[in-house]
Design a protein around this nucleic acid. Structure first.
Lengths: 342, 342
DNA sequence: CTGAAAGCGCTTACAG
DNA sequence: CTGAAAGCGCTTACAG
């Protein structure tokens, strides 16, 4: 579609291409849609005509008949504050956008911070305006998954959706194993009073990383000690609070596995204020390998989540789901990244 | 549009509503589009029918005839690394998404990091698949503005586009005045060797904030001294490098106005390493009031950019532009935020 | 104020 | 392999 000098759109349609190529509109459409049942000569004639006329398909007309929009939504039900505090979402959003763009599928960004926004977005999605949704919503109370499933909308979640739904596709990092790696590492470097700051218990990361911590402690023959376990809400401030509590409850702590880098940054702040050196007195291990890991002082030893792979898998799965494939879960491995904090 | 159990969409159309309401499709369409020339009784009959049938307009069909997509693009031509390092973009993206959502207009996120992505996005936009674009692209070398303008696509830029185009709408914070406020403040608190770390000279912030710095120095009767001026690229690392250079060139520096919080964070790091106390020995003033200002140690005194207002204005202007209004520029005031670094 | 009708640009059976 | 034709769901002059 071009716009003339009058500002009105004057589009070259399939009709113009057909005339230019000396074939029917049906034939043009066929080459547009894969070139099946088209003779080589017609094929080239059409392609040349397309080039000469500068034709671009009108997606609305196509969608009207195919019933597909060729677009997907990236829906965020997280309270916004957290979203914009957490660098992981950025990486995820960027990678998903680009993976989709590579297939010429635009990404509609939707933020459902308030209940009203949640309803509006749901209405839009359920009206069939997108072919599927990439869902980022770590809290479980959330009914979005249920609503979307009920409406039959293809869906892939980032992280395992807690709660009832067992039939939803998701891709997640191996949280539990990541926690295990970190705790094993702390133990191997000689620490014996290993604490943890866990995430909220209504998030997969909150549950799984804590479970990994517990398992590994047992595996290493270290006693379970509830005074070594405190929890936060993934924010930096909650990390500070948690560390202060920890220092009171278990002053002899010599290592902390923190369930997110942002919280770990808060932990190192509090530790520094309390006069504990990191890592000499207390080793600190984070989770995520987010930018926060680098900006923390000292830089954080942490668990890297493979966000590029996660987003690529999410996009791949969603497209497969849209094409009719069954749901599935993909669990991706994590890596330990050594820096200075442990 | 609903999906039956077979997974196929079975939509209720305007036709069903018309039948249910006992009117023609034209009448239904009229109430959908504002209710002009419709009798009150027809109006209510149609509204009831819509409610009963759960009708939702098919946007593709509507777009096919109106020639509008009722969606806009948020186009980012910044190299991605910078985007995801800069918290301002997050705020901007969130606010724009929500301001648009309030009007029921979806935002398509487009990232043009590479030349190939740039071309693909441009093709999509120029094909008329969106009604307009919100552009975030601070570097001037960029031909996107030119291309988009040539194609007649309604456009609003964030920040003044450097370069030739004089006819593009934009909204920007008052960079120059923000710089003035900060330098005046530093001067008023007794500093006399006030340095600056400027941004790249091909960005509006790089140019304007430096100009504001120079003007205010003169206004305060302080001598212009080029050894007090170094530049960075807005990254934290470049702030560190700049500060190191500064300490060599002008060891007696007692204040630094830094053109971004991220760079200012690098400056405080380097200052701390060099044994200078902030703010006792050297006062540091940032720009942006981004999350980095809070996570810096000490927290940064900085210039707040009104991102909420900026995004609201951008959306308002774009919608006006799409509706046919002439281009315009909006300059929004900034505020000094006092914290501990100066 | 309202209905009948044309038409937006495409895809897809249906015949050949 | 190809063309003619129907139809996707809507909006908008055009008559009344």
């Amino acid at each position: 579609m071009n716009r003339g000098t009058d500002g009105k759109r004057r589009s070259v349609t399939i009709h113009d291409v057909a005339r230019e190529a000396g074939v029917s509109r049906g034939t043009v459409s066929r080459v547009l849609n894969g070139g099946h049942y088209v003779s080589p000569s017609a094929q080239t004639a059409v392609n040349n005509a397309i080039r000469r006329t500068g034709y671009v398909v009108n997606r609305h007309a196509r969608s009207l008949i195919t019933g597909k929009s060729d677009s997907v939504a990236f829906l965020l039900t997280e309270p916004q504050e957290r979203f914009f505090e957490d660098p992981n979402f950025n990486v995820l959003l960027r990678s998903c956008t680009q993976a989709l763009a590579a297939q010429d599928i635009p990404l509609l960004l939707m933020i459902a911070g308030t209940e009203a926004e949640r309803r509006r977005n749901l209405r839009y999605i359920e009206a069939g305006h997108v072919d599927g949704v990439l869902l980022v919503s770590s809290h479980s109370g959330d009914s979005v998954v249920r609503d979307l499933e009920a409406a039959g909308v293809p869906l892939v979640a980032c992280g395992k959706p807690l709660g009832q739904s067992t039939s939803v596709s998701y891709v997640a990092a191996d949280d539990r194993d990541g926690a295990r790696q970190m705790v094993r590492y702390l133990h191997a470097s000689g620490r014996r009073r290993i604490a943890t700051v866990s995430g909220p218990s209504d998030t997969p990361g909150g549950v799984e990383r804590l479970a990994g911590y517990r398992e590994t402690l047992a595996e290493c023959g270290l006693p379970a000690d509830e005074s070594l376990i405190v929890s936060g809400d993934y924010s930096r401030a909650s990390g500070e609070t948690a560390a202060e509590l920890l220092l009171r409850q278990a002053p002899d702590v010599d290592a902390v596995f923190v369930a997110s880098d942002l919280m770990a940054q808060g932990v190192t702040d509090a530790l520094a204020r309390a006069g504990r050196r990191v890592p000499e007195d207390v080793a600190v291990g984070g989770f995520d390998d987010s930018p926060a890991a680098l900006s923390a002082r000292p830089p954080l030893t942490t668990i890297r989540q493979p966000w590029d792979r996660i987003s690529n898998e999410m996009v791949r799965m969603l497209l497969a789901r849209i094409a009719g494939e069954q749901h599935a879960a993909v669990i991706l491995p994590t890596d330990l990244v050594r820096r200075e904090s442990a």
